[in-house]
Design a protein around this nucleic acid. Structure first.
Length: 260
DNA sequence: GCCAACGTTGGC
DNA sequence: GCCAACGTTGGC
């Protein structure tokens, strides 16, 4: 079986939850070398993690910050196992509905591989996704039409809120090229394509209501199986940090939902 | 099982 | 801080 590719989001800026800072930037990751991806509290994201294999490649993404984008590369070094932070009442990601006999949440361990030589900002990806054709701008023509096309369909662009996403190989290739070669300084990424998503829908309400299909977790939720994935998603779970230390150290991840 | 209100994510 | 997107809850 071939290697699979993923994108996982973490928050590089400090944010305190239950007294713990959930920040986890590419700098933190580079220092730790490996990290347990705890804190994901969304079934679709969890199911994707359960399908990861050692050796799978991961794009490390900076989320919920001033300049969101792809900051580095990592690789899965330990397959899914129960996320113990869900059982720790003092932890930001504590989930009273799970128990040790029947774990609801899982995490994988990631090993840091490298920083992106050129940070790939979300604004660039949105800019590319909004191009009228598949012809890349001249400064990044190395992407080719296939590269442009592959970015237009990636989950990060089409449904931003999921914190763990699958990335197709051709998209991975395009992103890796961008990170390696850069060259888009001449493009105006600033407000440009922004409107894309947001501006369009005015029917916000309708949107929300109508959406439904989500099925959040497929139906069963946790127990459901792993493979499901792609359907619902929500967005939230983010990731986090920590290395290893177990509970002693706080740091980690991201937002979880406090739902109740 | 539908759907409106609500809460959260997360870009800007 | 704003607000669009969208999952989730809960009334019916």
């Amino acid at each position: 079986m071939a290697v699979n590719y993923w994108l996982m989001k973490a928050e590089p800026d400090s944010r305190i939850i239950k007294g713990m800072d959930v920040k986890f930037s590419v700098d933190d990751f580079e220092c730790l070398k490996t990290t347990a991806w705890e804190g994901v509290r969304n079934h679709e994201a969890k199911n994707l993690m359960k399908s990861m294999k050692v050796g799978d490649q991961v794009l490390f993404y900076h989320s919920n910050c001033k300049d969101p984008g792809i900051a580095g590369f990592a690789e899965v070094c330990k397959e899914a196992y129960p996320d113990y932070t869900a059982w720790d009442t003092s932890h930001p990601y504590y989930d009273p509905k799970t128990d040790k006999d029947n774990p609801r949440w899982y995490m994988v361990d990631l090993a840091f591989k490298s920083r992106a030589k050129h940070f790939v900002p979300l604004s660039l990806l949105r800019h590319i996704a909004a191009l009228p054709s598949n012809t890349p701008p001249s400064s990044i023509e190395y992407l080719g039409e296939d590269g442009v096309q592959s970015i237009k369909t990636m989950a990060l662009v089409t449904r931003g809120r999921l914190s763990v996403q699958k990335v197709e190989q051709n998209t991975w290739d395009a992103l890796q090229l961008l990170a390696e070669r850069g060259g888009w300084e001449d493009l105006d990424l600033k407000g440009k394509e922004k409107g894309g998503k947001r501006g369009t829908a005015k029917n916000a309400k309708a949107g929300a209501g109508s959406k439904k299909g989500n099925a959040a977790n497929e139906s069963g939720e946790e127990e459901v199986s792993e493979e499901q994935g792609e359907k619902s998603a929500a967005g939230r779970g983010r990731k986090r940090k920590t290395a290893d230390e177990d509970e002693a150290t706080p740091r980690r991840s991201t937002r979880t939902r406090a739902k109740k």
